[in-house]
């Protein structure tokens, strides 16, 4: 693996490989010394053009557990002119000898532009680009599902036949896109539920079932319900009338929660808006995987950094 830009171009073998390496990385977290010397001497740069303390910190912990040198390069609000930001920064990082760049950017495709630009030679890891993809989030979600299903016997297993329902603002969600492609590759069946205003155009070509009715989706016995964050500001652009109506129609409230199987997973990529897309009870119930997702995020990011940097010149 040269870069990790999207889950769309991950084949089953590569995806399972990442999940399995993440299992090994999780074992490290349970040791007394939570650190491996693997990436000693490697420089990883967190290049965040958009604020995200959670994701940035997760990569930071992951890099440090692998003994890499981690530098946080906050490009947000920098004085460089808007158009030149990416190129100038990339060339600066190249001059610093970065081995990997973890990039978060508000523009879709920014990670791919960086990887194919020739401005920098480093491995590029997409930590969220606009409304396009957020591959490590999808990987950690899949890892979390697999772990709940198979526990210690997760290695090598796909998500064959798993029913995953993703609810909310699919249109603007990079998490949804990355999950759709990855879960499909892993054999899961994905259902998207949202008002028509928040679904992308041309879903016919996606490997998903589409519905508008959350109640019908809840009653169709899903194995996983993934709630996406909804931004209240969307109502000003007429995507929905107001938060009350959104919550009533597409929120995971206590009543809908009660109708799910006891072992149905309730997932959320965070940060949650309790009371809007998810009730407090749903967020805190035993079905909720929210805290596992955070912990698993570190293992997945360790695995990806390891595969990008430790096996340089090696496989794929």
């Amino acid at each position: 693996m040269r870069h990790l830009l999207s889950t769309k171009d991950l084949d089953l073998e590569t995806a399972l490989g990442i999940l399995d390496v993440a299992e090994d990385m999780a074992d490290v977290a349970n040791r007394e010394v939570k650190k491996l010397p693997t990436l000693r001497g490697k420089t990883v740069i967190n290049l965040f053009f958009e604020d995200s303390t959670r994701t940035r910190t997760s990569f930071e912990v992951a890099a440090k557990r692998l003994s890499a040198d981690l530098i946080n390069f906050s490009a947000k609000g920098s004085s460089v002119s808007k158009g030149e930001g990416l190129k100038d920064t990339a060339q600066t990082l190249a001059a610093m000898g970065a081995d990997a760049v973890v990039i978060r950017h508000s523009a879709s495709g920014a990670a791919q532009v960086l990887a194919s630009s020739g401005w920098i030679d480093a491995a590029v890891l997409n930590a969220g680009d606009g409304t396009h993809e957020h591959p490590t989030q999808a990987l950690l979600d899949a890892y979390t599902m697999r772990k709940r299903l198979h526990g210690d016997r997760s290695r090598g297993k796909s998500l064959d036949g798993l029913g995953v329902t993703i609810v909310g603002d699919i249109l603007h969600s990079r998490v949804a896109r990355s999950n759709v492609w990855l879960l499909n590759t892993l054999g899961a069946h994905v259902t998207l539920v949202a008002p028509a205003t928040l679904l992308p155009a041309g879903l016919d070509g996606w490997p998903v079932t589409v519905g508008y009715d959350l109640d019908a989706a809840v009653d169709s016995n899903p194995d996983v319900v993934m709630m996406l964050r909804i931004q209240a500001e969307r109502m000003h652009a007429a995507f929905f009338p107001n938060t009350r109506e959104y919550s009533r129609q597409w929120g995971l409230d206590d009543d809908r929660l009660a109708r799910l199987r006891a072992d149905t997973m309730v997932m959320h990529p965070g940060p949650m808006v309790r009371g809007l897309e998810i009730s407090a009870a749903a967020a805190d119930s035993s079905r909720s995987t929210v805290l596992e997702q955070v912990a698993n995020g570190v293992s997945i990011r360790m695995a990806v950094l390891y595969l990008l940097l430790a096996s340089e010149g090696g496989a794929a």
Partner: peptide, 18 residues
């Protein structure tokens, strides 16, 4: 709007120009 609105804009996460 960033590109033609359709299946591809949905996939690429670029705002559609219908």
């Amino acid at each position: 709007a960033q590109m033609n609105e359709g299946a591809l804009s949905g996939e690429l996460g670029l705002a559609g120009w219908p």
